[in-house]
Amino acid sequence: TQTTHELTIPNNLIGCIIGRQGANINEIRQMSGAQIKIANPVEGSSGRQVTITGSAASISLAQYLINARLSSE
């Protein structure tokens, strides 16, 4: 079954999640098997909405990979 998880990434950290020309986010997508959508910046908001869709296992793996990127910054 597909589930969806949403999280907010601070604007100053979204770059390390996306990577150069989307390299990091594509790697996270491939490794986790989850669909990951990053919302466009919202004016006045300090973060970007990230939506992860997939199986429970792929979502938790995607979250783990995202958190690993954030903590390495």
Results as ranks from 00 to 15, higher is better:
residue 2 Q to T: 15
residue 3 T to V: 13
residue 3 T to K: 15
residue 3 T to H: 15
residue 4 T to D: 05
residue 5 H to M: 15
residue 6 E to H: 15
residue 6 E to Q: 15
residue 6 E to T: 15
residue 7 L to P: 00
residue 8 T to G: 03
residue 8 T to E: 14
residue 8 T to Y: 13
residue 8 T to A: 08
residue 9 I to N: 01
residue 9 I to A: 02
residue 9 I to P: 01
residue 10 P to W: 00
residue 11 N to L: 03
residue 13 L to R: 09
residue 16 C to N: 12
residue 17 I to M: 03
residue 18 I to E: 08
residue 20 R to T: 07
residue 20 R to E: 12
residue 20 R to C: 11
residue 21 Q to F: 06
residue 21 Q to R: 12
residue 23 A to N: 07
residue 25 I to F: 03
residue 25 I to Q: 03
residue 25 I to T: 04
residue 25 I to P: 01
residue 25 I to K: 01
residue 27 E to L: 06
residue 28 I to Y: 02
residue 28 I to M: 05
residue 29 R to E: 13
residue 29 R to W: 00
residue 30 Q to L: 07
residue 30 Q to R: 14
residue 30 Q to C: 05
residue 31 M to C: 13
residue 32 S to D: 00
residue 32 S to E: 01
residue 34 A to G: 02
residue 35 Q to L: 08
residue 35 Q to P: 02
residue 35 Q to D: 12
residue 36 I to L: 04
residue 36 I to S: 02
residue 36 I to H: 13
residue 37 K to D: 11
residue 37 K to P: 02
residue 39 A to L: 11
residue 39 A to F: 04
residue 40 N to F: 04
residue 42 V to E: 12
residue 43 E to A: 06
residue 43 E to K: 15
residue 44 G to I: 02
residue 45 S to D: 13
residue 45 S to G: 05
residue 46 S to A: 11
residue 47 G to N: 13
residue 47 G to W: 10
residue 48 R to P: 02
residue 49 Q to G: 09
residue 49 Q to F: 03
residue 50 V to P: 00
residue 50 V to L: 10
residue 51 T to M: 10
residue 52 I to A: 02
residue 53 T to C: 08
residue 53 T to N: 04
residue 53 T to F: 05
residue 55 S to M: 03
residue 55 S to T: 12
residue 55 S to Q: 05
residue 56 A to H: 11
residue 57 A to D: 14
residue 60 S to L: 05
residue 60 S to V: 05
residue 60 S to T: 12
residue 61 L to P: 00
residue 62 A to S: 03
residue 62 A to M: 00
residue 62 A to C: 01
residue 63 Q to D: 14
residue 64 Y to Q: 15
residue 64 Y to N: 15
residue 64 Y to G: 15
residue 65 L to G: 04
residue 66 I to C: 07
residue 66 I to P: 04
residue 66 I to R: 00
residue 66 I to W: 00
residue 70 L to V: 10
residue 71 S to L: 07
residue 71 S to Y: 06
residue 71 S to T: 09
residue 72 S to I: 04
residue 73 E to S: 15
residue 73 E to L: 12
